[in-house]
């Protein structure tokens, strides 16, 4: 489908295409070089991390850093699999609620008209601009009122109230779902919930797939040290960053850790994007 479009767009000059190519190429270099360097560091033996002049790529690539990391992980007081489970639970539960509650609210904001809608829109917009770290203390008090300190809830449930999702979903529902489609469904007797679940959500699949990634990124990066103090509840990035803080002797292991911390979100992202591409390929339905 895409091909047909790029063929049709004839109004493209050679010079324009060339400068775009150069611009994209420079951008890609700027993005990729530090990432490649980060990966290359992880495959260098410890003595190559501290040589002059420093080398961009390892001369004698080794997996030692990774095997050392696995030994360290195996010695962990709390089994490393427990940290992994904690991370998975927090990320999946948090993201699921964020997408569900956010999109329900966004559907009503985009396609319904009701008293108070303007106020909600304004609140959602403004709340995005209030410094999050000042809210930690009031939040802490609220959590202790609910007795959620040191439970998964302290990380999962506030994620359901993340405003970014509502804002994003509202824009996409507004743009991609035609009013006439919903009208027709309503005339056929579809309930509002049916409209939301069977018509709106499939059409805006790219939007909630994008939201999944954003939510994942948010929750995966949260080491949870503010609300969790039991070691066995803490997430994997926390455990790995503890290993990283081991000084010069652990420099190689630290590089391996940062590669692992990188690979997980990137894998999720690749899966996610393949889903989006698939949706785009199959659904010409957005325009009825």
């Amino acid at each position: 489908m895409r091909l047909r479009i790029s063929n049709r767009r004839l109004a493209r000059s050679m010079g324009g295409d060339l400068s775009i190519f150069i611009f994209l190429g420079l951008g890609a270099l700027y993005m990729a070089l530090p990432m490649i360097y980060a990966v290359s560091q992880a495959f260098k033996p410890l003595n190559e991390l501290f040589i002059f002049p420093p080398q961009f790529l390892p001369r004698h690539p080794t997996l030692n850093n990774f095997s050392e990391l696995f030994i360290l992980m195996a010695q962990s007081w709390v089994p490393i699999t427990r940290y992994l489970f904690n991370s998975l639970f927090i990320v999946i539960a948090g993201t699921a609620g964020n997408v569900l509650f956010g999109s329900l609210c966004a559907y009503a904001l985009a396609k319904h008209d009701f008293p108070g809608k303007g106020l909600i829109n304004t609140l959602v917009l403004f709340s995005l601009m209030f410094a999050g770290s000042v809210l930690v203390i009031p939040r802490y008090l609220i959590m202790s009122y609910f007795k959620w300190i040191n439970t998964y809830s302290a990380l999962v449930i506030p994620a359901w109230a993340a405003t970014l999702g509502v804002f994003l979903m509202r824009n996409f529902i507004d743009h991609m779902v035609h009013d006439s489609l919903l009208e027709a469904a309503r005339i056929d007797g579809a309930s509002e919930f049916y409209c939301y679940w069977r018509i709106v959500m499939p059409i805006v699949k790219p939007a909630w797939l994008t939201l999944i990634i954003l939510s994942f990124q948010q929750l995966w990066g949260d080491q949870g040290t503010l609300f969790l103090y039991s070691e066995e509840l803490k997430p994997l990035p926390y455990a790995l960053s503890q290993i990283m803080g081991g000084g010069v002797g652990r420099a190689g292991v630290a590089a391996a850790v940062s590669v692992i911390l990188m690979v997980v979100p990137i894998t999720v992202f690749v899966w996610n994007q393949s889903q989006i591409v698939q949706t785009m390929g199959t659904s010409g339905i957005t325009g009825e």
Binding site: L109, H112, F114, V134
Partner: peptide, 30 residues
């Protein structure tokens, strides 16, 4: 008018409750 639109409030309700507790109240407090 609100009663006529009560379905809309069902849709925004769950999020707004969470939003009020974890975002609006903390902002007001600070």
């Amino acid at each position: 008018n609100m009663k006529a639109n009560k379905i809309s409030y069902l849709f925004v309700g769950p999020f707004m409750v969470l939003f009020a507790i974890f975002v609006v109240v903390p902002i007001a407090v600070s």
